[in-house]
Design a protein around this nucleic acid. Sequence first.
DNA 1: ATCTCTAGTATGTTCGTACATACCTACATA
DNA 2: TATGTAGGTATGTACGAACATACTAGAGAT
Lengths: 245, 245
Amino acid sequence: MKLEIKHDSPLPLHVQVEELMRKLLEQPRYRDGALLPKEVELSNLLGVSRNTIRQATNKLENEGLLVRKKGVGSKAAPKKPLYTGLDHWYSFTNEMRERGIEVLNLSLEVRWVQADKKLAAFFNIEEGRKVLKLSKLKGTKEGLQPIVYFESYFHPRIGVDEQDDFNIPLYAMLEKKYGVRVVKSSENISALMAGKMAKRLQIKPEDPILYRERFVMDAGDRPIEYNTGYYRSDRFIYSININKA
Amino acid sequence: MKLEIKHDSPLPLHVQVEELMRKLLEQPRYRDGALLPKEVELSNLLGVSRNTIRQATNKLENEGLLVRKKGVGSKAAPKKPLYTGLDHWYSFTNEMRERGIEVLNLSLEVRWVQADKKLAAFFNIEEGRKVLKLSKLKGTKEGLQPIVYFESYFHPRIGVDEQDDFNIPLYAMLEKKYGVRVVKSSENISALMAGKMAKRLQIKPEDPILYRERFVMDAGDRPIEYNTGYYRSDRFIYSININKA
DNA sequence: ATCTCTAGTATGTTCGTACATACCTACATA
DNA sequence: TATGTAGGTATGTACGAACATACTAGAGAT
C-alpha cells in the first residue's frame, strides 16, 4: 500500500492525511477493530507533524468514523447500525444484543407448505408448489418474554431444507452454505391489533403490534425469501438508517 | 461582560473558551451578524493561545453555530444561508400520488416553540431555545379523510420561519431556499394505540396507529429536522426499499 | 495465587512560531 | 471613470515542543 503525501500539492496536508486514513479505515483489519498506527508512527511514516495527523483524525472522529481512547489508541468506529436494512450479517439476535438485550428462540418450526397465491406471485412459481416455511418465536433470555414472531418462506431454487441449522444468523447461513447473497429488500410496515397473534405474544388481543413484511432479493432481483414479523410494540422499536450520501 | 478563563480549572481551556463563545454568540449584536473578535484579540483577551481559540472555534463551526471566512472574520451562522441545488428526495404527497391517492393538507400550523430536552439533545442546542414547529394533518382529497398527522421541528441554524411556504414539498424547499441538503436519516417505527391522537385522525382511541420518528441530517451529520408522524394503519402502509448493491 | 505499585505507552491539552492564502481598501495609473 | 495593484488584515496550514492524563502490563509483595 502506498502511503504518499505530496508536500507540494495544493491540497492541504491534513486533507491528504484524512483521505488516506479513510482508505485505511476501510481495510478489513481495521474494519475488524484493529488499532490504527499510533499518532507518532503515522507522523513519522507520512512525514508530517503529529498536529497534522490529529487535525485529520479530529475530522474523522467528528464524522463518527473512528473512536479514540486515551492511553490506548484509535480504531475504526464499531459499525453498529441498529438495522442496516440488509446486511449480510443482519441478525435479529445480534441486533438486540447490541441494544443490550439477549434473545433466544422460544420456539422454532420448519415445515414444507404449499405456496399461496401471493407467495407464488413473488417467487414466480406455480401456486401450490412446495416451499419451506420457517416459523420462529423470539424472546428475552431473562424471563422468556416473547418479542417477535417471524414467518419465513424460501424460494425452492435456494435448496434449504429441514436439515439446515436455523439457530444461527439466517442470511450468513444462506451465503455460506448456498452462496446466496441477499442484496435488496422491500418492506411494508403497518400497525395492527394483535388479535389472533395475541396468545403467541402473550399480550391482549386489543393491544397494538407492529407488522412487517419483507421481500428479499439477490443482486439480480431474483426472489430469495418472503418474511413476515409480528412485533410486540411495547418491547421493540423498529429502526432504520438511511444514507443517500 | 465577564470574560473569565480559569487556568487552574480541571476543565480544559478550549472547553471553557467554547462555552464562553457560545454565550457570546447569543448576544444580540452577534446574533445580528456582527463579526466576532478576531482570533488574536480573543487570544490576548482571554490569555490563551490562538491555537486554543481555534480549537474551540472549530467545534462551534462544526456544530454550525458560526461561519468563518478567510481574510474577513468569523460570525454567528447566518439565519438564511444562500445556496442553490435541486432534486428533492421525499414527499409524502408525491409518494401517495404514485400509489394513486391524491392527498392534501387538511390543516397546517407553524409556530415557534421551546425545544424540549430530547430535541435539544439532537439539535445540540440549549433546552428551551426557540425552534420552529410545523404541524400538518394530511388526508384524502376525496372525502377529506385524515391519513397522517406530522410534526416537524427545524434546527434554528437553518433559518426557516413562518413566512415560508410549507405547502410545497418540504425537502425540496429546504434545498432551494436554504441550501440544505438532506442526506441521512434515522427512523424509529412503532405501533401505538391511538389514544389522544384518535380525535385528530378520526378513529377510535383503541385503534392501532403507526408511529414514526425521523432524525434528518446533512452530509456532515449536522441535524436538520426532527419529524414525527402518526399514521392511520387502516389507510397507510409504510414501505421501505433498500438496495445494498 | 492475588493484590499493588510502577514504569511505559498513547492520546489530550497547550503553548509559541512561521508562513500561506483570501479578502478588503485605498491609492495610482490609463 | 474604470481598472489594476500594493499593502494591511484575518483566517488557514503546519511545524515543534512540553507536560497532563488515562490506560496497560509486568514486577514485586503478601
